[in-house]
Amino acid sequence: MAFTEIAYDVADRVATVTLCRPERLNAFTHTMRVELIEAFDQADADDGVRAVVVTGAGRAFCAGADLGGGGGTFGHRERGDGVESVEGAPRDGG
């Protein structure tokens, strides 16, 4: 998977996940949620990874949820975006 809002790198048995939206202080989005889950799944599947470091690009780690899209920003049911679910509940992205 090509990431657009995070970067994923492995060096010396450490996976580094960098939030890459410095213009928005790395505010959390639905896209970032999907990409983080994929990055953590990749790290979990890689027996060479012994630690995961999560960091942010620019001057902030993460400003919280990016609500620039309005109140439905994280409304997965309304979007019908196929978020993985377990027994009808969406997978926890937090």
Rank of each mutant, 00 (worst) to 15 (best):
M1R: 14
M1H: 06
A2W: 00
T4H: 04
A7R: 07
Y8H: 04
Y8I: 06
D9W: 00
V10I: 12
V10D: 06
A11F: 00
A11M: 03
D12E: 14
V14H: 00
A15S: 07
T16I: 04
T16P: 04
V17G: 03
T18N: 07
C20Q: 09
R21Q: 06
R24L: 11
L25I: 00
N26R: 09
A27N: 03
F28Y: 12
T29D: 01
T29A: 08
H30G: 15
T31F: 02
T31H: 06
M32I: 04
R33F: 03
R33H: 08
R33N: 09
V34T: 12
V34I: 13
E35H: 05
E35P: 07
L36Q: 02
L36E: 03
E38C: 11
E38S: 13
E38P: 02
A39C: 05
A39T: 06
A39R: 01
A39K: 03
A39E: 02
F40H: 12
Q42Y: 02
Q42I: 10
A43N: 03
A43Q: 02
D44A: 15
D44W: 02
A45D: 14
D46S: 10
D47S: 08
G48H: 02
G48V: 05
R50M: 15
R50I: 07
V52N: 03
V52G: 08
V53N: 12
V53C: 09
V54S: 10
V54K: 03
T55W: 00
T55K: 08
G56M: 09
A57L: 06
G58C: 04
G58D: 08
R59M: 06
A60Y: 02
F61W: 03
C62T: 06
C62K: 03
G64A: 09
L67T: 10
L67M: 15
L67S: 07
G68V: 02
G69Y: 08
G70Q: 04
G71N: 08
T73K: 04
F74S: 08
G75F: 14
G75N: 15
G75P: 00
H76T: 10
E78D: 08
R79V: 10
G80L: 07
D81Q: 12
V83T: 15
E84Q: 12
S85I: 10
S85K: 11
E87G: 13
G88E: 09
G88R: 13
A89G: 05
A89E: 08
P90R: 09
R91S: 12
D92M: 04
G93E: 08
G93K: 05
G94M: 07
